[in-house]
Write a protein that binds this DNA or RNA. Structure first.
Lengths: 173, 173
DNA sequence: TAAGAACTTGACGTTCACGTAAGCTCCGCG
DNA sequence: CGCGGAGCTTACGTGAACGTCAAGTTCTTA
């Protein structure tokens, strides 16, 4: 159950909801590892579950954090550390110092990502509060308008209320 | 103190942290209202606090929701309704039916924005949970590593081993 | 009123993130 | 074994979102 790597680029694209071109492009700019540095020129790229996961992560971070692919390259270096760890484990190359270093690296990157996520959550929270507040005000003004106007008058029919030109209490700005 | 409109495009740009070109571009594509449809050809654009606010809102939504300027145009239609309301109030053109319609419109747009914000918050929350979980695992593995080989074997080079705080500043690449 | 900074329109250039087309190659199948 | 569909490389094209340059104009201030 080591790693299967029996998916081709089109399969992967369909799995994660993108196009082969995009996957090749990501590889080209170094966002994804060369899917077959071993692969003899001209042969098909082959992927396993691990690279599908990584691509998913890339797309998720891109969408949610709104960073450029270049910035993303820095960010997802955590995946590199994870991959290195895994391949190290498979080769039972258990140099504890090296392993610790990889873990420290991964931890650092995870913390950077979390930092970004938290910043964004904060801003989104503020935005939500502002929008909710504005909604509250609009609702209040609507209530006031409906109350003050005479009885019944639901539809967009003409008529409407009397030229009652007062009650101009408006939430400034 | 109705509206001052004594800011020029460069001032506004500095205030909100962008460039004049961007502001003109936003106007060009209809994201911002023609800052002076009245303005005789060739004269300087003039802005007031209201348009500065709107621009800020535009940039905030763009950054936080990651939508295209085209989608943004739909989204911020709420601002148009608000502007309409205000200008209506200034001209004490108080047709209650029209006012109600504007309020309904604004409410709808606010709700769409909130919907988007909530969706995004959900996804960000999930991402945060995933990242935190991974961090937890990395930390656990690091603890295990440190506990297990504490005195049994010295590393290959230098003092590798003890849970010493920071010995691994990496400058790879 | 003269100078110079900031602005105007118009047009072309640029970067990012892919799309698309061409010509050739590889791989599963009948 | 042949063939059709997916993949490969190379290269040029594209839309979004501005940047930049030029030539002229408008505002402000000394």
């Amino acid at each position: 159950m080591t790693e299967t790597r029996d998916l081709r680029i089109g399969d992967v694209a369909r799995l994660v909801g993108t196009t082969p071109r995009t996957i090749r492009y990501y590889e080209e700019i170094g966002l994804l590892p060369d899917a077959g540095a071993d692969r003899l020129a001209g042969a098909h790229r082959l992927y396993g579950e691990a690279e599908v996961e990584r691509l998913r992560e890339v797309m998720r971070l891109k969408a949610l954090l709104g960073v450029s692919l270049d910035e993303l390259k820095e960010l997802i270096a955590a995946e590199d550390a994870r991959a290195a760890l895994r391949s190290q484990l498979r080769r039972d190359d258990v140099d504890p110092a090296r392993r610790r270093q990889l873990l420290v690296e991964a931890l650092g990157h995870l913390e950077r990502q979390l930092e970004l996520v938290h910043r964004r959550q904060g801003e989104l929270g503020k935005l939500e509060a502002d929008l909710a507040e504005r909604r509250r005000r609009v609702r209040r003004r609507m209530r006031e308008l409906d109350d003050e106007g005479v009885v019944s008058e639901p539809g967009p029919a003409g008529g409407a209320g009397p030229p009652d030109a007062e009650a101009a209490e408006v939430g400034r700005r």
